[in-house]
Design a protein around this nucleic acid. Structure first.
Lengths: 209, 209
DNA sequence: CACTCATGTGTACAGTCGTACACAATGTGT
DNA sequence: ACACATTGTGTACGACTGTACACATGAGTG
C-alpha cells in the first residue's frame, strides 16, 4: 500500500486509450475497432491489451469516465467566465464549441457512444448528460433565472438544452475542425436554439400537466 | 427494355437488407457488421453480396433511401390524422412513437447512422431530417400557425423540433419495445419538449439577428 | 434452338482476428 | 538479497474476414 514509483505507471494504458481516440478522430467508429488494431496504433503488442482492459467495452467505459472529467472541466470554465446573464448563452455556447474543438476525439467518441453497440457505454454517456443537465439547473436557480419554473419544468428545460447542444455536437463533428465559417454557423444556430428554448421557458406557465 | 418476369427479382437483395436490419435490432452496430456476417444471416453465400452491393456502405446508403420512404409514410399519416391544432403535438408525437415501434430496426439504423462511420450515410440521414423539417415548416405555414415568424425563424424552429424528436428516438431505442410505461414516459416528455419550443416560438419577436 | 445476361453457388487464398501460453524486464516489500 | 507482483514481449493457433475466379442456373431475346 505504498507509493508507486515505477518509471511510467499506466503508460501503455494511456497509449491504448489515446490510440482509440486517435482512430476515432480519423473517422473510424468505436464499434468497428478491434483489439489488434488498437494495439497496433498504440505501438504495443496485442497481448498487452489484456494487462489493462478485459475487452474493448471495458476500455470504452473507462473512456466515458475520462469524458466525464473533460465535461466537468468545461463546466467549471463556463461557471468562471460567465458573469452577465444577458451574455450567458453566447458565452456558454462559445466555451462549449471551443472545448469541442480542443477535445474533438472525446466528443466524437461521445457522439458515437450515444447510439453505440455497448449498452453500458450508452448508459454511461446518458448519465453524464443527466448530470450536466442537473448542474445546469442548479446554476440557473442560483442565478435566479428560473424562479417561476417548478423543479420539474426547470429540469425538463435543462434536459432539452443539453440535448440540443449534444445534437449540435454531431453537427460540429461532421465538419472539418478548420472550417471556421461552418463552425461559426453552428455556433450561431446553437445560440438561437437555446434562446428559443429560454423564451419558451420564460413564458411557460403551468402548461404542463 | 421489356418487363421482367423472373420468379423473385431482387429477392436476395431484400434478404440482405433485412438481414442488416435484423442484426441491428439485435443490438449490433452497423459499423461492426461484415459482409460474411450479413450474408450468413440472410442465408446466402458470401459472393452473392457483390451481385447487389459494392460494399457495406453501399448497402447502407440504399437503406437510407428506404428509410426515407418510411419517414414519408409517417408524415402522410400524420397529415391525414391531425385535424385540430390544439392536439397537434400529442397526435403527431403519438404517430411518431408508434411508427418508431413498428419500424424499430429502421429507426435504430437511423440513430446509429447519425454518428456512424460512413460520411455518405451520415449525410443521407441528415438530408432526410432536413427534408422533414422543411415539410413541417410548410404544414405550419399552411395551418396558419406561424404567421408571426420569419421564414428563417420558422425553419430554425422546425429544425429544433426535428432534432428534439430525433433525440427522443435514441431514448426510445434504448428501452425494450414492450416496456409500455417507459414508452409512455418518453412520449409525454417529448410532447413537453415540443410544447416548450412552440411556446418559445409564439413569443419570439425579432430577437434573432 | 442457341445466345446472352442477371443471378446464385462452391472453392480458394492470403490476411486479420481474439486470445492462450511461456518468458523477460523491472520495480516493491521483506 | 531474495521472492513477488506487475507490466510488456514473442510465438502460436484456430476461426473468421474480404474478395477473386470458375461455374451453374434459368429467363428473355434473336
Amino acid at each position: 500500500m505504498s507509493e508507486r514509483k515505477k518509471r511510467k505507471p499506466g503508460e501503455t494504458r494511456e497509449k491504448l486509450m489515446s490510440a482509440v481516440l486517435s482512430l476515432v478522430s480519423k473517422g473510424r467508429h468505436f464499434a468497428s475497432l478491434g483489439i489488434r488494431e488498437v494495439t497496433r496504433q498504440a505501438g504495443v503488442v496485442p497481448t498487452s491489451f489484456y494487462r489493462h482492459f478485459r475487452n474493448m467495452d471495458d476500455l470504452g467505459l473507462q473512456l466515458v469516465d475520462e469524458l466525464g472529467l473533460v465535461l466537468r472541466r468545461m463546466m467549471r470554465e463556463a461557471r468562471e467566465n460567465v458573469f452577465q446573464a444577458d451574455k450567458l448563452i453566447e458565452e456558454s455556447v462559445g466555451i462549449f464549441v471551443s472545448h469541442a474543438q480542443a477535445n474533438r476525439s472525446f466528443f466524437l467518441f461521445m457522439a458515437q457512444g450515444l447510439a453505440g453497440e455497448s449498452r453500458a457505454i450508452q448508459d454511461g454517456i446518458r448519465s453524464e448528460m443527466r448530470y450536466f443537465a442537473t448542474e445546469l439547473a442548479n446554476d440557473l436557480r442560483r442565478l435566479k433565472l428560473a424562479d417561476h419554473l417548478s423543479d420539474g419544468d426547470l429540469e425538463m428545460t435543462c434536459d432539452l438544452v443539453v440535448r440540443s447542444v449534444a445534437f449540435s455536437l454531431t453537427d460540429l463533428m461532421g465538419i472539418s475542425a478548420e472550417d471556421e465559417y461552418q463552425v461559426e454557423q453552428i455556433r450561431k444556430r446553437t445560440c438561437r436554439f437555446l434562446q428559443l428554448i429560454f423564451v419558451g421557458a420564460a413564458h411557460w406557465d403551468n402548461k404542463g400537466p
